[in-house]
C-alpha cells in the first residue's frame, strides 16, 4: 500500500489544492459568510445598547448626534466545519486505499482552506479517525491518521453511526460520506438525520467494477465479509445476470435517492485515478448538489 505521506502523493494533493483556487477563484474563507453577527470586519447593522454589551462596539458618533447608545454589529466570519465520514467496514477492505486517497485529497483541501476538519470512520459504530483540526499544520497528522485507520466492525450501520455523530453535538457543516453504500440496513435514514441537522451532505461512492459482476459459476459458498454469514448458492449465467442487475438497481436507487434529497453524489471507480475524480468534482462546482 502506497503511503499517504510520501512526497509524490502530497504533491498531487498540492496540485489539487491549487486547482481548487483556480476553479473557485479566491479564498474559500471569504465565501463562507455566517448568518451570525459577531466580531468580524464587515459592518452588518446597528443595535440598541443593552447592559452587558461590549462597550467597545458603541458607535460614539451616533451617540453624539442622537444621544442614543447604539452598538455596531459586524458579520461574523466563521470557519467551515468539514466532516468526512469514511466507511471502514470490512466490505471496504479492497477499496480502502482508494477511499483513503479520496479522503486525504478532500481533507487536504479543507485544511488548506483553513476549514475545521474532522474525520470519522463508519462501520457498526462511529470511530474518530481525526479529531477536529484546523490549519495547514494538521495536514501531516491528518494523513497519518488516515494511513493508520483500518477496517473494523462486523456491519455497516450508517444510521447508528450518524446518530452517534449527532449525539456529540457537532456544529453544522459539510458532511462528506465516502463509502460503497452497499449496506443491508440502508443509508437513507443516515442521510435524513444529517439533513435534519442542516448539514450539507455529499456522498462519494467508491465502487469496484469487479464487485458488480460475478465471474464464478457453479456451487459456491458465499461468505459475507462483514457478518461472516454463509450462503450456498448455484450460480449459472442467469443468476450472474440477475446479480449484475441487482447491483445496477441498487446504484440507481442511490442516485435517485440522493437526487430527490438534493444530496450531491459522485461515483468513483477504483479503476479511475483518484485525482481525476476530485478534479471532476471540483469542476462541477465543488461538493454541492
Amino acid at each position: 500500500m502506497a503511503s499517504l505521506t510520501d512526497s509524490q502523493f502530497i504533491r498531487k494533493l498540492e496540485m489539487l489544492s491549487l486547482l481548487t483556487r483556480k476553479t473557485l477563484g479566491g479564498s474559500l474563507k471569504a465565501d463562507r459568510k455566517s448568518t451570525k453577527k459577531g466580531s468580524g470586519t464587515t459592518f452588518a447593522d446597528y443595535s440598541e445598547y443593552n447592559f452587558g454589551d461590549d462597550y467597545r462596539s458603541i458607535d460614539w458618533n451616533i451617540y453624539a448626534r442622537l444621544e442614543n447608545l447604539v452598538i455596531k454589529l459586524f458579520e461574523l466570519e466563521e470557519d467551515l466545519h468539514v466532516y468526512i465520514f469514511i466507511d471502514l467496514s470490512p466490505s471496504m477492505t479492497p477499496k480502502l486505499e482508494y477511499a483513503h486517497k479520496l479522503a486525504a485529497a478532500l481533507s487536504y483541501i479543507a485544511l488548506n482552506n483553513l476549514d475545521r476538519l474532522t474525520i470519522y470512520g463508519l462501520s457498526d459504530k462511529l470511530h474518530t479517525v481525526l479529531r477536529p483540526a484546523h490549519g495547514r499544520g494538521h495536514i501531516f497528522p491528518m494523513l497519518e491518521a488516515l494511513q493508520n485507520s483500518k477496517c473494523y466492525g462486523h456491519d455497516t450501520r450508517f444510521e447508528k453511526c450518524i446518530k452517534s455523530f449527532q449525539a456529540r453535538g457537532q456544529r453544522r457543516g459539510m458532511c462528506v460520506l465516502i463509502s460503497d453504500f452497499f449496506a443491508k440496513s440502508g443509508f437513507e435514514k443516515a442521510l435524513d438525520l444529517l439533513q435534519w441537522s442542516r448539514h450539507d451532505v455529499f456522498c462519494l461512492q467508491v465502487s469496484d467494477p469487479d464487485d458488480e459482476k460475478c465471474e464464478w459459476r457453479g456451487d459456491i459458498d458465499f461468505k459475507c465479509v462483514e457478518t461472516g454469514r454463509l450462503k450456498r448458492v448455484t450460480v449459472g449465467p442467469a443468476e450472474a445476470m440477475r446479480f449484475a442487475e441487482a447491483v445496477h438497481e441498487w446504484q440507481q436507487y442511490l442516485q435517485q435517492n440522493c437526487a430527490k434529497r438534493g444530496v450531491g453524489l459522485a461515483q468513483a471507480s477504483v479503476k479511475v485515478p483518484f485525482e481525476e475524480v476530485i478534479q471532476n468534482i471540483l469542476r462541477k462546482g465543488g461538493l454541492v448538489a
Binding site: 470490512p90 466490505s91 460503497d180 452497499f182 443491508k184 464487485d211 464464478w216 457453479g218 456451487d219 459456491i220 459458498d221 458465499f222 461468505k223 459475507c224 465479509v225 462483514e226 457478518t227 454469514r229 450462503k231 450456498r232 448458492v233 448455484t234 443468476e239 440477475r242 446479480f243 441487482a246 447491483v247 441498487w250
Partner: peptide, 26 residues
C-alpha cells in the same frame, strides 16, 4: 463448493429468493 468472500451477500439474497421445493432439491 468453492468458497468466496463477498460484501454483497444481501444482494445475492435478493437473487436467490427461491421456492421451498427448490431449496429442498438443492
Amino acid at each position: 463448493p468453492e468458497k468466496h468472500n463477498t460484501a454483497l451477500l444481501f444482494l445475492w439474497d435478493k437473487v436467490f429468493r427461491e421456492r421451498q421445493s427448490s431449496v429442498l432439491f438443492k
